[in-house]
Design a protein around this nucleic acid. Structure first.
Length: 482
RNA sequence: GCGGAAGUAGCUCAUUUGGUAGAGCGAUAGCCUUCCAAGCUAUAGGUGGCCGGUUCGAGCCCGGUCUUCCGCUCCA
């Protein structure tokens, strides 16, 4: 385990050193738990997103993709339950480290008081809560010497609002402004567009709506590199099904999603299912697909059977009918008719997937050369189809017409996949650099190329090389990246 | 959020009791080189995380703050 943690540090350093991930605003000492993707990372992340998007929308006739706005009507978050469940002021006792809801703490204290004094305190608490006066609430607790039940002390932290949602104002005039939230999940953008998509796309149940995009959660503690960030990207698909068939589809997506992860090179023994014991208010079944990260087994993707909770809630709050008319015939030969569809959700964190791929790809290799000396390299064995750069084109020398041939090859290949051109430094050094950023293929142009139009192709994972016609380079690399 | 540790060049680290910062690797440019980090030359790069205090003088001592890591907590 100690080695794995050290290894994790090295992965983080490597990500920075080779332009995969930088800390946000590093110039100003950084912003906690926010990260930027660099020139390599942005491309890898895009490739992962594209793979997912393709597997969902292009490969399934009955799944379509949308791109909903981050800003949504405030009532969306009331309907979804996000506002009510997560907006309580909390306070911690520094001695016992026990956390309390402020209203619960004060109410418990009031129960020990005379009726009149108690009512006065409740009235004061309600006034402070309504005014969002967190400092006032702390003063109330301290002046009344309300103690922690465990430590019996009055050593409190400040009162903090523990709503996980970030809020901001819409509209330029403050008095008229409405508080809106940055979405804490992308799913609601799909639910509120259910009717739009179903009707305009003439979608028939069962069908899915997919979406990728940023979500924001004001985590109390956000750590472990890009595993838990305050701003992150989700790739979600909500699959709408006939009520009663949800478990069938839940099991279908459970398997389908695990297979997809395996298809991008995640070994099956590094993945496992973890069933939720305690279910969220909206779910009738839920599980995580976990990956064995360098710091342990953690959630990579969630599969949730969300029942008709979300659509019903939006129907209730919007006072609009959100239903589907099913013309298919049931066992008795009658149409299923009107109903609120049930939902099976797949929700994967793109940043977590990125971390998964990087932590699998990162390898330090050592070997003994033919002359008996030691050699080593750090290599990112990112599967070719998601690697940010597919091909490096390297003239062995930067003279004798070799760069000209190399440039010609570059121009031929770059419309088809991402290439990198380099003529500086010894060839071995250039190979090492390509290993470090995970480029799966390198081709070298030498003097023999001028005679017989062949080049050397060198494979990242095995470090083996072979001679191929220059005319074959494009096809071989394209095929290797499928 | 609580407790612990850390922060010096892109990276890894020096700078022995306080006396205004160095190396290796890397990077850039040039020379030389016919396939796995070769060699030579030159150059760039640091108000020692930031702010304040003590001192004649602080990278070093003290306080605060920011960030990161570890443990706990949290993560509908």
């Amino acid at each position: 385990m100690a080695n794995e943690i050290n290894n994790f540090q090295e992965i983080i350093s490597h990500c920075k050193e080779y332009g995969y991930i930088f800390q946000s605003s590093e110039l100003y000492d950084g912003l906690s738990a926010v990260y930027d993707y660099g020139q390599m990372g942005a491309q890898l992340k895009k490739n992962l997103r594209d793979e997912w998007w393709k597997s969902m929308t292009q490969m399934h006739d009955n799944i379509v993709g949308i791109d909903a706005a981050i800003f949504m009507h405030p009532t969306v978050w009331k309907a979804s339950g996000h506002v009510d469940n997560f907006s309580d002021p909390m306070i911690d006792n520094k001695d016992s480290n026990k956390r309390y809801r402020v209203d619960h703490l004060i109410e418990a204290h009031v129960a020990t008081l005379e009726k009149e004094a108690g009512e006065a305190m409740i009235a004061e608490m309600d006034r402070l809560l309504a005014a969002d006066d967190l400092a006032g609430l702390k003063t109330l607790i301290e002046t009344n010497k309300i103690k922690c039940n465990i430590s019996k002390t009055c050593n409190w932290t400040d009162v903090r609002q523990f709503n996980l949602m970030f809020s901001t104002q819409i509209g330029s005039v403050a008095e008229e402004a409405d508080t809106i939230y940055l979405r804490p999940e992308t799913a609601q953008g799909i639910f509120v567009n259910f009717l739009n998509v179903q009707k305009t796309g003439r979608m028939k149940i069962p069908f899915g709506i997919a979406q990728t995009g940023k979500a924001f959660r004001n985590e109390i503690v956000a750590r472990q590199f890009i595993f838990r960030m305050r701003e992150f990207e989700q790739m979600e698909m909500q699959f709408f099904v006939r009520p009663g068939t949800q478990m069938e589809w839940y099991n279908y997506w459970k398997d389908a999603r695990k297979k997809w992860h395996e298809s991008i090179g995640i070994p099956t023994e590094k993945l496992r299912f973890h069933d939720h014991v305690k279910l969220a208010h909206y779910a009738d079944a839920a599980l995580d697909i976990e990956f064995e990260f360098p710091f342990g087994w953690k959630e990579l993707e969630g599969i949730h059977s969300r029942t008709d909770f979300d659509l019903s809630q939006h129907a209730k709050y919007s006072k609009k009918k959100i239903q589907y008319f099913d013309n298919d015939l049931n066992a008795e030969g009658k149409a299923y008719g009107n109903y609120t569809p049930f939902v099976v959700e797949t929700s994967v964190g793109l940043d977590r997937l990125f971390l998964t791929v990087i932590s699998l790809a990162y390898q330090e290799e050592k070997w003994t050369k033919e002359d008996g000396t030691e050699d080593s390299r750090v290599v990112l064995k990112i599967p070719a189809k998601i690697a940010p750069t597919k091909l490096a084109i390297l003239p062995l020398l930067k003279k004798d017409g070799l760069p000209e041939i190399a440039t010609e090859l570059l121009n031929e290949c770059k419309p088809h996949f991402h290439c990198f051109y380099e003529e500086k430094d010894a060839i071995g050094k250039r190979y090492r650099r390509m290993d470090a950023i995970g480029t799966p293929f390198c081709v070298t142009i030498d003097h023999q190329t001028k005679e017989d139009n062949t080049v050397t192709i060198r494979y990242r994972d095995t470090m083996t090389q072979e001679r191929i016609p220059i005319s074959e380079v494009k096809n071989i690399v394209a095929k290797g990246c499928m």
